[in-house]
Design a protein around this nucleic acid. Structure first.
Length: 795
DNA sequence: GAGTTTGAAACT
DNA sequence: CAGTTTCAAACTC
């Protein structure tokens, strides 16, 4: 693949050089010509792909997440194929990411984050978000290229700078690359004009270069592999052509910087692709390295790319979509990396891997996080898991707070039906989540065990690794990743540890033997998450491969009980304690949706879902001899959460307490940091929460809710600040506001009898439910812009 | 690690 | 809707 392209590229370049036009352009700004060409290709591919991706079914989401694969595929595709829809999707996704990176918004993040990791995360994350939004965004990307000048030359320039000068070089390369892509002659034309415009605007000395660089970087983002080739060719050609002094300088810089650029670009574009990034980084060292990288990348891509096989695709995609899946997917890469790292000294490729590890420690982790997140998003669409996992991760890190977002995920998943609207929602959710995640990750890493994140990254399963990492052996995830079956790992121990830590729940690990992980017995499935390696389940169908089965099963279950996947615990207090109180008579801030039915555990053990969720029992509970430390059914314990400490004797409680303290601390810190970092969102997302909104949480709602939820969380933070919560499972009320609220209220309202309320009806609207809705709504309203819809709904 | 307890989920 | 069974987590040893 590469070879032919290179040859192609070379010829065009030489031609350009010879042409007077080329000279003229070079004089003005060497980049321009290149850009025009390059852009055209990129856009073309992107533009075409993007729209489909957006509208595509849930799978699309997954694809989005699987940027790596996509990229790889894209690369391959661009070189040779580029036929499959998936590929197109990938492109679109990539585009969006790239675009995102380019655009001031996205780019700003990377820039802002001095830490490579952060930048990467953001980049990776952003794309996902954007993707969802996307349908439109893709066009934006195009627009950007075309209209980019208008879009914000200044910002772009800044971004470009932030991206590094490297991009500039790459950009040149990129431009060449497009040339290579003979495909888009037409597009090329289109782009050219745009480029011209850009150039004109750019005409400013600095601006021109920066812009070019930016664009180039963008291009690179889109097609890293091409970039490499382009670089090679460019270097060769450029060097010969003395005319392009600027280019030379750029190239020289690029030689040193390439690695950085590549990293950035790759990270941003691919998000997850360690491999790619690594390669680029290595390549940065020397052009030769670039070639190697190209090969290496290809290899990696091939290996990693599941796309080749449909099943593989699904798997990978889903994985990305889902943390766990990401683990699998990434695991392979990780293993590779690890292997490379170990043996790496020899091969450049290996070096690249090492680069990832060493250099990238920051990057990798970030990337991983980002990837995982990304994956999550897709996963979300397919399965709630992703979200949950994300949340889990966040929770793990922060462990504190909020729960909020997962619900959204579930809802989306619950809907399963992937309507365009849903997609959008999904996209939205992910974005917020991702941001949060990113933030959290960023923050967390530093604060926590940075090492862990690094470790995780590879596997990423944010859920576990993150959790484990800190306390346990971060390495485990890696180990698992490789492919093992979690079975080997003792899930119980892990769970216990996690639980003790206080947040084990976030990382769901099941041990199902007969349910095939397709029933609510399975925690993973119930949480809307795919089973991961750590799981010791048997005959597990709760895997990306069996997406269809999972979805169908979910639908069936939801048909029976719309709230089946809804978060079991609702926290009213988090966002707005006061509001939360309403629903329940019980003091506890949060309430279990259905309420427990404990008879022997006195609601003092994890057998009790309320206790397990860190919430007090409510009227809806039918428990006997309730002694729930978080709040008794009779309401004796008012501040259930606060009360916890009293009775809590269990390690879990301890963990909770600790977590709570940590949470409070983290929250406080985060709150302070919120401005700088999106920590808040992170918290939210991390908060755990699993997922479950689905129940009724219809995807669309989740959408809205998610957005609003973030706001809610924010408000919560501000309002409550520290109230520690130990709610592993719960999701959050706020986010779910619409959905959850109804259910919650229903629960509460219905609960009087003491019987569980399945409450499908409740959602609709019993008066009581309205209350819950109101509360939630109120909370959400302030926080989010999107509130309007909610309000309307609530109304 | 194996076995028991527990309560939710699923089934009738 | 109630009762029973199934299931897997939680817990104990």
């Amino acid at each position: 693949m590469d070879t032919p392209d290179r040859s192609k590229i070379n010829t065009p370049l030489s031609q350009f050089e010879d042409s007077p036009v080329f000279n003229y352009i070079s004089n003005l700004s060497p980049i321009e010509p290149v850009k025009s060409v390059h852009i055209t290709q990129t856009f073309n591919s992107l533009s075409f792909s993007s729209p489909p991706s957006v509208f595509t079914s849930p799978h699309v989401n997954c694809h989005r997440e699987s940027r790596f694969l996509r990229r790889h595929n894209l690369l391959d595709a661009s070189k040779g194929k580029g036929s499959s829809e998936d590929i197109n999707n990938v492109y679109s996704c990539e585009k969006t990411p790239a675009d995102s990176t380019q655009p001031c918004h996205e780019s700003s993040e990377p820039q802002e984050n001095t830490n490579p990791n952060i930048s990467i995360r953001d980049a990776s994350i952003e794309p996902c978000d954007e993707n969802p939004n996307i349908s439109i965004e893709v066009p934006q990307g195009l627009k950007y290229n075309l209209a980019s000048p208008g879009y914000e030359p200044v910002i772009c320039a800044d971004e470009a700078d932030s991206l590094l000068e490297l991009p500039g070089k790459p950009g040149s390369d990129v431009s060449y690359v497009p040339d290579d892509s003979e495909k888009d002659s037409i597009e090329g034309e289109m782009h050219l004009p745009a480029l011209c415009q850009n150039e004109e605007k750019i005409e400013g000395p600095n601006c021109g270069v920066d812009d070019l660089i930016n664009e180039a970087s963008d291009l690179l983002m889109f097609s890293p592999p091409n970039m490499k080739e382009a670089f090679k060719d460019i270097n060769k050609q450029l060097n010969p052509s003395t005319k392009l002094t600027n280019l030379r300088t750029l190239l020289r810089q690029s030689a040193t910087n390439d690695g950085h650029q590549m990293h950035i670009v790759d990270t941003v574009a691919s998000g997850s692709e360690h491999e790619i990034e690594n390669h680029p980084c290595e390549s940065g060292a020397a052009t030769d390295t670039v070639q190697r990288q190209d090969k290496h990348n290809n290899v990696a891509l091939v290996a990693s790319n599941p796309i080749e096989k449909v099943d593989d695709k699904l798997v990978y995609v889903t994985h990305r979509g889902i943390r766990r899946r990401c683990l699998d997917f990434e695991m392979a890469s990780v293993q590779r990396k690890n292997l490379d790292g170990k043996s790496n000294t020899n091969s450049s490729a290996e070096k690249s891997d090492e680069m990832d590890v060493s250099k990238g420690k920051q990057l990798l982790p970030i990337k991983h996080s980002g990837d995982s997140r990304k994956c999550v998003l897709p996963g979300i669409g397919l399965h709630l898991n992703a979200l949950a996992s994300l949340n889990d991760c966040k929770n793990i890190k922060i462990e504190t707070l909020l729960s909020g977002r997962q619900p959204n995920l579930p809802s989306s998943s619950s809907s399963l039906q992937l309507s365009a609207s849903q997609d959008h929602q999904l996209s939205l959710v992910p974005t917020s989540v991702e941001k949060d995640m990113e933030q959290s990750d960023n923050e967390v890493q530093p604060g926590e065990d940075c090492t862990q994140p690094l470790v995780h990254m590879p596997g990423e399963d944010c859920t576990q690794p993150l959790v484990h990492m800190p306390g346990e052996d971060c390495t485990q995830p890696l180990v698992h990743m490789p492919g093992e079956d979690f079975q080997q790992n003792s899930p119980k121990k892990k769970r216990r540890r996690l639980e003790q830590d206080g947040e084990g729940e976030s990382c769901k690990r099941c041990n199902c033997k007969k349910s095939k992980c397709l029933k609510l017995y399975c925690e993973c499935f119930a949480a809307g998450v795919y089973c991961i390696e750590p799981c010791s389940c048997r005959d597990c169908f709760n895997k990306p491969i069996h997406v269809d089965t999972v979805l169908q099963t979910r639908q069936q279950i939801e048909s029976r009980n719309p709230l089946a996947f809804a978060p079991k615990v609702i926290r009213s207090s988090d966002s707005v304690p006061e509001i939360g109180d309403d629903p329940n008579k019980t003091p506890a801030s949060a309430r279990h949706k259905r309420g427990c039915n404990c008879k022997k555990s006195s609601c003092l053990k994890k057998y009790c879902e309320c206790y397990q969720g860190g919430v007090g029992c409510s009227i809806s509970c039918r428990c006997e001899g309730c002694k729930n430390t978080y709040g008794r059914k009779d309401g004796s314990v008012h501040s259930g959460i606060e009360a916890k400490p009293e009775e809590e004797t269990e390690a879990c409680e301890r963990g909770v307490m600790e977590n709570a303290s940590h949470k409070t601390e983290t929250q406080n810190t985060e709150d302070h940091l919120d401005h700088a970092l999106p920590t808040t969102p992170l918290r939210l997302s991390r908060s755990l929460i699993p997922l479950p909104f689905s129940s009724k949480g219809k995807p669309p709602r989740s959408f809205v809710t998610t957005i609003s939820s973030s706001g809610l969380f924010v408000s919560q933070k501000l309002g409550k600040s520290s109230a520690p919560r130990s709610q592993p499972k719960f999701e959050m009320p706020v986010q779910t506001v619409p959905d959850d609220d109804s259910p919650v209220t229903c629960i509460k309202t219905s609960s009087p009898n003491g019987k569980r309320i399945s409450s499908p009806n409740c959602d609709v609207g019993s008066s009581p439910t309205r209350r819950g809705g109101r509360k939630l709504i109120l909370q959400s309203i302030p926080s989010f812009p999107s509130l309007t819809p909610h309000n309307l709904r609530s109304d």
